[in-house]
Amino acid sequence: MRTIVCFGDSNTHGYDSRTGGRFDRETRWPGHLAKLLGEGYSVIEEGLSGRTTVFEDPLYEGLSGISCIHPILMSHEPVDLFILMLGTNDVKSRFCATAENIARGLERLLRKLQSCKEAFCGGEAEILVIAPPPIDKRYEKSAVAGEMGELCAEKSRELAPLFERTAKLCGADFLDAGTIPGVEMYPYDYMHLSPDAHRALAGELAKRILTRYNDSGVRPLS
């Protein structure tokens, strides 16, 4: 049984911006991924709405990824693959962070993961960094505009190349979710994944993971 931890924010937790609730397990991308991979894999969801890479939110507690990543990692050891998709919340105007600052926060997080060698199978960290799809500028006319602040869409579009550079620097794999066909933002706030986007992301991840472990192919969803 291979253990895969999916660490992220509301787009891993499965926030449904149409209802304000949460997509069910069958809709969320980690749930799709578990189905596609089959019985030989344990896919663990570790998503939290509002989570950042390293920034402490002055309005809500417990949202800094770097402050909780070690106990989360150790609670699921031994881990074969750690999938990390963060960055969307880091662009909030209240953090006053540039895209470059956010990438440096990602580097700190990756270095922290790599220092926990005892949690990974074989003693070496296997990490996949996913750059989240950028926020659509139409979010400015949605209910979340006041929460995010100005210029968040523009800043989020700068993240993917910086995250790719950071992943390479740290020896992690990289995937730009914004380039996956079918990955789109739900047209209720333009910053959370639609159900189709969850499915598309899971499909791309399944292909990569099965190739990594030389498995036979993606299972059909029933």
Score class of each variant (00 low, 15 high):
Glu126Val: 14
Ala103Trp: 01
Glu118Pro: 07
Asn101His: 14
Leu106Pro: 01
Val144Glu: 05
Lys92Cys: 09
Ala131Gln: 03
Leu106Asn: 02
Gly146Leu: 14
Ala143Lys: 15
Gly87His: 03
Phe95Ala: 09
Val91Ala: 08
Tyr139Trp: 05
Ala119Asp: 15
Val129Arg: 05
Pro134Ala: 07
Gly87Glu: 01
Arg104Glu: 13
Val129Lys: 08
Ile130Glu: 08
Glu140Met: 10
Ile130Ser: 08
Ser93Tyr: 10
Glu124His: 09
Cys121Phe: 15
Ala145Thr: 02
Leu110Met: 08
Glu126Leu: 13
Glu124Asn: 11
Leu86Ile: 01
Leu106His: 05
Leu106Gln: 04
Lys92Trp: 14
Pro133Gln: 03
Arg111Gln: 10
Gln114Gly: 07
Ala125Thr: 05
Ile130Gln: 04
Ile127Pro: 00
Asp90Ile: 05
Leu128Asp: 06
Gly123Lys: 03
Lys92Phe: 15
Glu140Ala: 12
Arg111Thr: 00
Ala119Glu: 15
Cys96Pro: 04
Ile102Arg: 05
Glu126Ser: 13
Gly149Asp: 13
Tyr139Glu: 06
Arg138Leu: 10
Asn89Val: 13
Cys96Ala: 15
Leu128Ser: 00
Ile135His: 00
Glu124Cys: 07
Glu107Thr: 10
Lys92Gly: 05
Gly146Gln: 11
Arg111Trp: 08
Arg108Tyr: 06
Gly149Gln: 10
Glu147Ser: 14
Gly105Cys: 03
Leu113Asp: 00
Met85Ile: 09
Met85Asp: 06
Glu107Arg: 04
Lys137Asn: 11
Arg104Trp: 12
Ser142Cys: 06
Gly105Ile: 05
Lys117Ser: 13
Leu113Tyr: 00
Cys116Val: 00
Asn89Ser: 10
Arg104Phe: 11
Val144Arg: 09
Asn89Lys: 02
Asp90Pro: 01
Ala103Asp: 01
Glu124Ala: 11
Ile135Tyr: 02
Met85Thr: 02
Arg104Cys: 08
Lys112Gly: 09
Glu100Trp: 15
Ala143Val: 06
Glu100Val: 15
Ala145Ser: 14
Gly146Lys: 14
Pro132Leu: 03
Leu110Val: 07
Ala125Ser: 04
Arg104Gly: 12
Ala131Ser: 06
Gly122Thr: 09
Ala99Met: 04
Ser115Phe: 10
Ser115Cys: 12
Gly149Ala: 14
Arg94Leu: 07
Cys121Ala: 11
Arg138Met: 08
Asn101Lys: 06
Pro132Arg: 00
Arg94Gln: 09
Ala131Leu: 01
Glu124Gln: 13
Phe95Arg: 12
Glu126Met: 07
Leu110Ile: 13
Val91Gln: 01
Leu128Glu: 07
Leu113Glu: 00
Leu106Ser: 03
Ala119His: 06
Glu147Asn: 10
Ile127Arg: 00
Thr98Asp: 07
Ala145Trp: 14
Cys116Arg: 07
Ile127Val: 13
Gly87Tyr: 04
Lys137Ile: 15
Val91Ser: 03
Cys121Thr: 14
Ser93His: 14
Leu109Trp: 01
Lys137Phe: 13
Leu86Thr: 00
Phe95Pro: 09
Pro134Tyr: 03
Ser93Pro: 13
Lys137Cys: 13
Ala125Phe: 02
Glu124Asp: 10
Arg94Asp: 05
Thr88Phe: 00
Cys116Glu: 11
